[in-house]
Design a protein around this nucleic acid. Structure first.
Lengths: 147, 147
DNA sequence: TTCGTTGCAAAGGATTTGCAGCGTA
DNA sequence: TACGCTGCAAATCCTTTGCAACGAA
């Protein structure tokens, strides 16, 4: 299974193979979406009731440093994590409710032409936010229109 | 001056016209870029040495609630603020060093076609990040390549 | 045995809130 | 005067760190 591959990679780099780390990877691999540290610990405590939030953060930091996962913040205080994309450049539809991501192969950069004089492009971000098919908006409050 | 216009708007909505609020608006209007609360207070303390960070945050919250400014977090813990765009939809080149923004009229959405089945698009984000002409990268450390 | 990993307690940075005094209208 | 605004102190939320015990290789 894919988790083993990542665990082997980690072992090769001098890390130990712990059950907690494996479960974090498992969860992220099984959930194709951005999850918060809080979500992770809520899930992982089913297997490891004594798991601490610090351990989750430390493991997330390790995985991030090793390029295995990505951290992102959608203008919120709380960070969210997902498996890093290993296969090429692309963007995503992202569900603002559950964090689910759907790949999007269109990239706006080629259509952009030259950057303004003196501007050195480092990277770009393109995300389409909304509700996925499993998460429909609450009917009472219409979502705010932001352009 | 433009600040007066916003202050009048605020007054009409039941807020008081305080010098501190005016200076925050002044600073944001004069700096076409994303600034942090810390940057703001550092500047504003020249005029108001006793100004507290809480007041800055409270004013930023008011301005945000009234749609006058925008809050954004570039995957950092600290939030950044700028005047909200009043004139139509567009995106930006953003300097990761000083937060300066340069308007960009290309929008990737029209080229996108249909959203995946069941996905309700709420909004999107497109930003080109890099160094502006005033901020060149430090030569020693090459910036990390992120796609 | 070695050295990475963990939980606990505590610290840290960003942001918010309770409260009483101050200032604008 | 009325009520929004402010500073202070304290709280909150998210995240990191020091330390000693634990566990994988």
């Amino acid at each position: 299974m894919q988790t083993d591959m990542y665990m082997t990679t980690l072992k090769d780099r001098g890390y130990r193979l712990t059950g907690k780390r494996r479960e974090i990877l498992d969860f992220l691999l099984q959930n194709n979406r951005y999850v918060t540290a809080r979500e992770l610990i809520d899930h992982l405590r089913e297997s490891y009731p004594t798991l601490s939030l610090e351990t989750v953060y430390r493991n997330l930091k390790t995985l991030r440093d090793e390029g295995i996962i990505e951290e992102s913040r959608f203008d919120e205080l709380e960070a969210r994590y997902r498996m890093a994309c290993q296969n090429g450049h692309h963007h995503h539809y992202i569900c603002v409710m559950c964090g689910k991501t759907i790949m999007l192969d269109h990239c706006p950069m080629p259509a952009l032409g030259c950057a303004p004089s003196g501007f050195t492009v480092l990277q770009h971000r393109f995300e389409v936010l909304g509700y996925c098919s499993d998460c429909q908006p609450a009917p009472e409050s219409s979502p705010e229109q932001k352009n």
